[in-house]
């Protein structure tokens, strides 16, 4: 378990102090994939570096499995770091060493015998599917392959935690998908705790269990990815989500006025979100049968948040105002997330 308590980080800048983090509190449970999302300059890179003390917090404590990282001396910190693997946006491989030697590097730092290194490195290369590239140099590899080497290297010392600093940001979408599924796979197989820093909501949606949104050095929202996705509270969170799940009304509504108050003859627009396998009741069908209203489906899609399917449906209801009210009350009584957009006329 990683506990960040009241983390503050201040840099000395040419024009006075720059506050990068102000009072961060975060608990990351063992075995989960925790995403931290923010725009560039929000402080997310500083935050992840506070976990392994590449950046020393100005205030606060970082407690990993009961041990306060901020209180360790140089030697103890080096030992603690061997339990934390890290991967980077620009891979940071040794250009002068082969793939094999790059993966062996952390083991050589601990003076592991060569025979043991071989036993450890070969299965890792197999895990990341690079066995045939063992004797090539990083410059001969593609971006995705370089990141696989980075992942194998990060896992070499058998760490309990993997820190991922924008690991897919320099990769194309297909490669990103492959690397993300590798991280997910490793998390499931090895039970390793993963902390992911990213500016892409897609990464959070694909692999994370929990998410924290960081803005100007403060965590503005955090929770289970499913909850944050289906019920975002902060403007910044909504913005991140809308980047991958457009939440705009169909074009034909662009010229219409949307009113929150009932307007006679207007169409009530409602966003319905189904999460998991909650579709045990034919909600839409009942809506049409049981209420004297017309229902039109304006938009719909099905997506996945990690392994949980979730569907979204934008419907328009027309008819008598009181009947629409009853229909809305029926929808709200179901185990669905309902967002009323307004009456369009």
């Amino acid at each position: 378990m990683i506990e960040l308590k009241d983390i503050e980080k201040t840099y000395e800048g040419p024009d006075g102090d720059v506050v990068a983090l102000k009072g961060i509190n975060l608990t990351i449970e063992s075995g989960e994939i925790y995403g931290i999302i923010g725009l560039s300059g929000a402080g997310k890179s500083t935050l992840i570096r506070c976990i392994n003390m590449l950046e020393r917090p100005t205030k606060g404590s970082v407690i990993i499995d009961g041990e306060d990282m901020t209180s360790l001396d140089a030697k103890a910190l080096r030992d603690a770091r061997k339990n934390i693997g890290m991967i980077f946006q620009h891979f940071n491989l040794l250009s002068s060493a082969t793939v094999y030697d790059n993966v062996a590097f952390p083991l050589r730092l601990s003076n592991t015998p060569e025979s043991e290194i071989k036993e450890r490195v070969e299965p890792l290369l197999e895990l990341v599917n690079l066995k045939d590239k063992a004797h090539q140099y990083p410059s001969q590899l593609s971006g995705g392959q370089k990141q696989r080497v980075g992942i194998a290297r990060a896992l070499a010392s058998n760490p309990k935690i993997l820190l991922s600093d924008e690991a897919t940001s320099a990769l194309d979408p297909q490669t990103t998908k492959a690397i993300l599924s590798l991280i997910l796979d490793i998390n499931k197989k090895l039970g390793i705790t993963v902390v992911v820093i990213t500016h892409e909501m897609q990464v959070i949606k694909d692999i994370c269990d929990k998410v924290a949104v960081i803005e100007n050095g403060v965590i503005s929202e955090k929770g289970r990815v499913l909850d944050v996705f289906t019920n975002p509270q902060q403007a910044i969170t909504k913005e991140f989500i809308s980047a991958i799940m457009p939440n705009e009304l169909p074009r034909e509504f662009s010229g219409k006025t949307i009113s929150k108050e009932p307007v006679p003859g207007a169409e009530l627009l409602v966003n319905i979100t189904f999460i998991g396998d909650t579709a045990d009741e034919p909600v839409i069908s009942n809506l049409i049968k049981d209420f004297p209203i017309d229902v039109s489906i304006l938009y719909g899609n099905i997506d996945h948040i990690k392994d949980t399917p979730f569907g979204r449906l934008l419907i328009g209801m027309t008819g008598d105002i009181s009947a629409i009210g009853d229909a809305l009350a029926y929808l709200r009584s179901k185990n669905l997330r309902i967002e009323v957009i307004g009456y369009a006329s």
Partner: peptide
């Protein structure tokens, strides 16, 4: 590149 040095620091070098 400082990133490589940083990676080694992160490994406890």
């Amino acid at each position: 590149p400082y990133g490589i040095v940083e990676a080694a620091l992160a490994m406890g070098a």
